[in-house]
């Protein structure tokens, strides 16, 4: 135990360095996936056939390719087309794009769950599509969308570890590097696991609060 604590205090600064990048990757890709997901979802519910089809093809393509492969594609293949990204940029874009598919499905489900009478009421007072979405549908859909959104946040935080495969020095990669140079696998990976837990547990608490606050049964 004594050695564990001594090693831990020695490794912790490096691991916290990794935590910083984990958070950057997770937050960056969360923001990107949210924006893109909303775009795909709005295309799906636009009522314009070809727009909806494009969004559907994009979402299904993204869902059908492993996140790891998408990361490799962006980091290793895009440079061949003259698009060179830093590892951090590639990680944020890769995870953001990959997760936009799941965000989109969540948003679309939320939007489509709103009673069609709401759309008709909005139209009947002269609202166009944009105003109907902004003032009537989205403010109601957000209540349905938030709890699953929180779960997606937890998954993205954990999946940010995949950025380690394209050399982003986030928590998992920092851990791996320390472990392979010190051979203190148990200490290092226990710390890594604890640090992930420390980030996820508050987030999970937040999710269950969202579920209690906005979950089913409290609508209207």
């Amino acid at each position: 135990m004594q050695t564990f604590l001594r090693d831990a205090t020695q490794f912790l600064p490096l691991l916290l360095q990794g935590v910083k990048f984990t958070l950057i990757v997770a937050l960056g890709s969360l923001a990107l996936s949210t924006v893109l997901g909303l775009v795909w979802a709005l295309m799906r519910v636009s009522g314009i056939g070809w727009l909806g089809t494009i969004a559907k093809v994009i979402v299904n393509t993204l869902r059908g390719i492993p996140i790891l492969v998408q990361l490799f594609y962006i980091y290793f293949v895009l440079p061949e087309f003259g698009i060179a990204l830093t590892a951090l940029q590639a990680a944020i874009i890769g995870l953001g794009v990959a997760y936009s598919a799941y965000q989109s499905e969540n948003f679309r489900a939320g939007i489509e769950a709103i009673d069609h009478g709401q759309v008709e009421a909005a139209q009947s007072i002269g609202m166009g599509w944009g105003l109907t979405m902004r003032r009537v549908i989205l403010p109601q859909a957000i209540r349905l969308v938030l709890p699953p959104y929180g779960n997606i946040m937890v998954m993205m935080l954990k999946d940010s570890s995949q950025a380690s495969t394209i050399t982003v020095a986030e928590l998992t990669l920092q851990g791996t590097l320390i472990a392979s140079s010190t051979f203190k696998n148990m200490t290092v990976y226990s710390l890594v696991a604890l640090l992930y837990l420390a980030m996820c547990l508050p987030l999970m608490g937040f999710v269950s609060w969202l579920e209690r606050r906005f979950g089913k049964g409290t609508r209207r």
Binding site: Q118, E120, A122, G126, R220
Partner: peptide, 19 residues
């Protein structure tokens, strides 16, 4: 849009905005 602004509608199920 202009026609709908000039022509209001009241629905059987009210369709008020619950939020």
């Amino acid at each position: 849009i202009g026609i709908r602004t000039a022509m209001a509608m009241v629905f059987q199920r009210f369709n008020l905005f619950p939020h």
